[in-house]
Structure formats: C-alpha cells, structure tokens
Design a protein around this nucleic acid. Structure first.
Lengths: 238, 238
DNA sequence: CCTAGTTACGTACAGCGTACGTAGTGCGCT
DNA sequence: AGCGCACTACGTACGCTGTACGTAACTAGG
C-alpha cells in the first residue's frame, strides 16, 4: 500500500552485497574505518556524511547506498572498535579474565573517546559485540551459576565500565577544551564547589571533600569498582 | 591580549543576574522548563535554540543572553529534572533508602527518556545534582565506612541505574519508532540472532537464549542488579 | 545625569542530514 | 545470447541547525 516500506531497520540484518548491479567500491569495514579515523582525529561532531564520503573519496550521496541513515554509521563505528578486543583463551580464573576484559574495554574507550557517547542508542547486537559477549561467557565457564546470572554479571560489569570511563573522558575533555590551564579550571571548579559547600547546605559533601582532597588515582578507583561488582557475584568471597 | 576570553565555562559559576541593564524577562528555571517540555514532547532532537525561544515567546538570539552555548542548555535541563527527586528524611535503613533513590531515578528517566543520552558529557555539579548527592550521603549515614567508600557506592549505583535504564529506553524507543508492530520487530530480531547463533559461532549465547526465552521482567532485572551492587558494600551480607 | 554594561532580536553564514532524479553498470533469467 | 532490473554513483536542492555580528532600547552605579 504505502509504496516502499518494510526493509529491515537494523543494518546487520541487511546483506552487505546482493549480487545484482556493479560491484560496490567499498566494504562496510572500509566505511567504518574511515568514520573511526575521522572521529578519532576530530571528535564525534566531525563525523558527517560529507566528511566520511570525502575521506573515502566518493560523493556524499553514494554513502547512502551502504548506510541508509547516519545512525547506522554509528552502529558500524561501534562494531569497528569492538574488533579491537583481543579474544584470547580463558585462563580458568574467571575474575582475572573479566578484569582483563574490563580493562581492555576501558583502554579501547580511552583510545576512541567518542565511544561512550554512542553507547546509548545503539542496537547492541553487532557481529563484534556478539563475539565479545560470547567471549565473556566463555571466561565465565568456571563460575557455576545459570546463564541468566552470567549475562546479568556481564551487563552489570559493562555498565560500570562504560559509566566510569565516560566520566573519566568527560572531565579530561573538559579540561582539554579550555583556553586556560587545567590548574585554572580546577581552581574555578573548586571555588564554585567551595562556595556551594560554604553555604552549609551540603555538610556531608563538605566532609567527603575534606577527607581526601589530594589528586585521585582514577585507575585505582576503576579497579576498586570492578572488584566490588565481581564480589557481588563471587560465591567464594571472603 | 586576545580580546574577550576567560569567562567561566561552567554555567553554574556565572551569576544569573548582574544587576546592570534591563530586567531579564525569564529565569533559568523558565528556560529549563521550556526545554524539558519540548524534549518530552518531541524528543531530544526537537530541542533547538529556535524551538526553545519560540516556546518562551522570544527571539532566537535572545536566548544566548541566558545560555552562552547549547551545551549549557542541556546542563539546565539535567538540573531541572534533578529537581524531581523527592528528598525525604532517611529511614535509617540505608539499603531501602538507596533502592528508593535508584527506583526514583529510574522513574524520572522513564518520564524524560532523553536524560540518559545527556548524562555523558554533562558537568555533573548542578545545584540539584549536589542536593541529590548530599541526600544519598545522608541516607548512607548508618553505614559505617569512610566517605570515600560512600561516594564510590553512590557513583557505582548511579552508573548502574543509568546504563540499565538507558538500555530499557533504547529498546522501547526502537520498537516504538517502527512502522511495523513490536511482534514483527521481535521476529526480525530473533530471526537475525537465530541466524547468527545457528552458525555455531556463539554456543554459549545460544545456550543462554535457550535457557530463558520468555518475556523478561525488566523491573525485576533492575531490582536484582541493585541488590547485587548493594551486597558488594554491605558488611552484614549473608 | 551620564555612561557602561545589559537585554532584545533581525540578519546572515556555514554546515548538517537526506529526498529526489538521472545516468551508467553488470548479474540472473529466459 | 541478450533482455531487464536491481543496483551503484552522485549532483542538486531543501529545510534545518548553531551561532557570530550589528543595532537599538534600557537601566543601575558612579
């Protein structure tokens, strides 16, 4: 009735090549790599259909043969960085393996600081995501709980990794984009926080800031959070 | 040297009114409320400076007197929904109180589905955010650990709430924006997942899907995740 | 009272996603 | 073998975005 309609919305469900017509000049991997390159160099806002097309050396609208909507380009990008996970044989120590996975995810996100911003609103079942998920479950083979619990562990851990790393990146980028130095920015921030705290409305926040006002080791904070989550699933926790 | 420069980057650090010149026609709260109204009705992509100005009944560029950059408008929006947290006297049971806080955050996000997308990349020290943080610490008064641990608990819990709710919203919106029904979408999705799983490359994912393929209770999944996180901090855990 | 700093806002510009139309190409079917 | 159709390629154009800049009106501090 309504003309076209009813193609698969999810890019992974549509075949990369149908066999009819001229050979496509690029693969999805080519396109994803170009977009990733641009995002790494100029941030997520530099990723426009025009820029990606230019990077590939083709007309802007040609891109739409491969990527029906820009949102799908994002999906390709997430999948592309997912390929950077180094899948290795599980060691038998599920805690150590999961920590390694989490640290690797964090490293990937620090390498591609736009990833966390894309994580909300992405389908989540790209080939490399599935590959990584399967790998996590393999690492959890020694843990004797139902698969339902294992998937909850993976979801929880990934969530923590994403939010923690997103925060690290956000604060880092904020200070980077400043025309002034990091010290100045921190001074302004502390001054503001101090002025708020000084009103007496936030006594516990004030106490918390008093407790440790030195420079914080983000890596250590991250590690502690991981251990906490794993503790919650460890039957042998002491 | 370079002309202007060096105004506070963070909107909360600049005063709402300086005392000089004509009385401003709106407050920050007015602007935030207008933006929230638009986002609730038309999604985050409907929030443009022009739309917000029109909603307020003023010229587009007048908005820039109040909000130097669009990013700051987002900041106002996050603060505005933060006001929806109902701060009530802690009960003495920190687990119950924190679960209540988390459920309330989840409810707010479901009421304003654009919140999770804005959480990455926002400053995080708006007045209402500080208020909420202070409240969480107050709820944790009965827990006898250093403030450092308490703030880590709050951060971890908020992270979990955000990612879980973001996922719920993402899948819900995906099926809503379909021209076809939810059943059809699910059929396509299951068909795709099934085709992937059928390759034999993901045996554990296959097993996990076999284990429970019925409709899942998202609320219960969320609750379990909360309990897990709280377990990790509970000295009295059995 | 004067004047500097503010509010208000119209205009303008560069860039965005993408609908649409047209031309060329090569696989699959008859 | 060759027809036809589905595909690739891409230029043009439209409506929208954020916001720099200039101008006019206004008001509080010195």
């Amino acid at each position: 009735m309504a003309g076209k309609a009813a193609e698969p919305q999810v890019i992974w469900a549509r075949p990369e090549r149908t066999g009819r017509g001229p050979r496509p000049a690029f693969t999805r991997a080519d396109i994803a790599a170009a977009a990733v390159r641009i995002a790494d160099a100029g941030g997520l806002e530099a990723v426009s259909m025009r820029h990606v097309a230019a990077e590939l050396g083709c007309g802007t609208m040609s891109l739409y043969n491969y990527v029906p909507r820009k949102e799908d380009l994002y999906e390709l990008m997430i999948d592309a960085v997912g390929a950077e996970h180094e899948i290795r044989e599980p060691s038998g120590d599920w805690r150590a393996d999961m920590i390694r996975n989490a640290e690797e995810t964090r490293a990937i996100m620090h390498r591609h600081t736009w990833v966390p911003r894309l994580m909300s609103g992405v389908y989540g079942f790209s080939p490399n995501t599935l590959r990584y998920l399967e790998h996590c479950l393999a690492c959890l083979d020694p843990l004797d709980v139902p698969y339902g619990v294992k998937t909850e562990l993976v979801a929880l851990l990934n969530g923590v990794v994403t939010t923690y790393t997103a925060n690290e990146i956000a604060t880092a980028e904020r200070t980077r984009s400043m025309p002034w130095s990091e010290e100045e920015e921190n001074a302004v921030r502390i001054a503001y926080l101090g002025s708020q705290v000084a009103t007496g409305a936030y006594p516990r926040l004030a106490a918390a800031f008093m407790e440790d006002s030195g420079p914080i080791d983000l890596e250590a904070v991250f590690r502690r959070a991981l251990e906490r989550v794993l503790d919650a699933f460890d039957p042998d926790r002491g």
